[in-house]
């Protein structure tokens, strides 16, 4: 039982990070019908932004809430700028072209970010400083062997707070209303006097900032960061967005948590049903194919008819 609870905590912990990244995918897809392949790399850029902020400001590893807050907010701002630059200079010029063009563009941007990082700083993993001190501290015991570490608690709390904040922005503010209008119909929104370019730009900024938060938070638990860390995580987060219903914000959160939990349970209990832990990375893709077969609109998404 304690093992089960422990695996649930582990799974939801990974899932919270997927959820933060999936939000960016789902928001961008909702507005532009674009799979932003570079989003996983923005997550990586966020983690490295945090790393270099800590390096240049001179925060050493060691428990410090201040350092964590500064690094987190700084990384989110930098990633938001990166997201806006990508949108402005790569996606906006090709927005009028076919879907395939934008998709190839997205892949090009993703590869460019990864390879620039590899060429400039090398593929060697870096160690992100531990600002919680949880890595040398015993975890909090719940019952039996089940325990939760400080980093895991912080990941849960910060991601929940960010998700609630996003929900508030999207549903309670004027900007959020504009975002929803643009995602509903870009041209009508433009006719209603909404500055759609600004709204799209803002959407990229918010999505990128959330991904960066995911990058910094995950680095508090897994200090290993490298330029290619965004590829697989980004893909799984995308699957999470599809599972929840792409374009649907609560769906992305639900999808992220489910994918995280599913992966961890495959590691934990897969061998009982004949799936070795070696298949962990295949789980997300298998789920994707199943969702597409059974319910292409995702768990919470509504079926949208293709417009003529």
């Amino acid at each position: 039982m304690d093992t089960f609870v422990q695996q649930l905590i582990n799974g939801l912990n990974v899932g919270a990070i997927y959820a933060l990244i999936a939000l960016g995918y789902t928001m961008v897809y909702g507005i532009l019908r674009l799979i932003n392949f570079a989003h996983g790399d923005v997550y990586m850029v966020g983690a490295f932004a945090g790393f270099y902020i800590a390096l240049y400001v001179g925060f050493a590893a060691g428990p410090s809430w201040m350092a964590l807050a500064v690094v987190l907010v700084g990384a989110m701002i930098i990633a938001a700028l990166v997201g806006m630059v990508i949108e402005r200079f790569a996606y906006r010029p090709v927005r009028k072209y076919s879907r395939m063009t934008t998709l190839i563009m997205a892949i090009g941007v993703s590869l460019l970010i990864e390879n620039l990082f590899v060429a400039q700083i090398g593929a060697t993993p870096r160690a992100f400083p531990d600002f919680l001190g949880s890595q040398s501290q015993a975890p909090y015991r719940l019952f039996g062997n089940a325990a939760i570490s400080k980093a895991q608690i912080v990941i849960f709390l910060v991601s929940i707070a960010l998700m609630l904040l996003l929900q508030w922005v999207v549903f309670k503010t004027k900007v959020g209303t504009a975002m929803r209008a643009v995602s509903f119909n870009l041209n009508s929104a433009k006719l209603m006097g909404i500055n759609t370019d600004a709204i799209i730009s803002l959407t990229f900024a918010i999505g990128s900032a959330l991904a960066a938060a995911g990058g910094v938070l995950t680095a508090q638990y897994n200090p290993n960061i490298d330029p290619l860390m965004g590829i697989l995580t980004g893909l799984k987060a995308f699957v999470a967005a599809v599972l929840g219903g792409i374009g649907n914000i609560p769906g992305a959160v639900l999808g992220g948590l489910l994918i995280g939990a599913a992966e961890t349970f495959v590691v934990g209990y897969g061998q009982h049903i004949g799936i070795a832990s070696t298949y962990r990375d295949a789980v997300a893709f298998a789920i994707l194919i199943l969702v597409l077969l059974l319910r292409p609109s995702g768990l919470l998404g509504s079926t949208v008819q293709e417009k003529v």
């Binding site: 093992t3 422990q6 912990n13 990974v14 897994n222 490298d226 590691v267 934990g268 832990s277 070696t278």
Partner: peptide
């Protein structure tokens, strides 16, 4: 016996089973 692949960042699932 548990496994991971290079580039993985979360090993808590595997380690929990090993702990058990």
């Amino acid at each position: 016996e548990q496994s991971y692949t290079q580039g993985d960042r979360d090993f808590s699932g595997q380690l929990t089973q090993i702990r058990a």
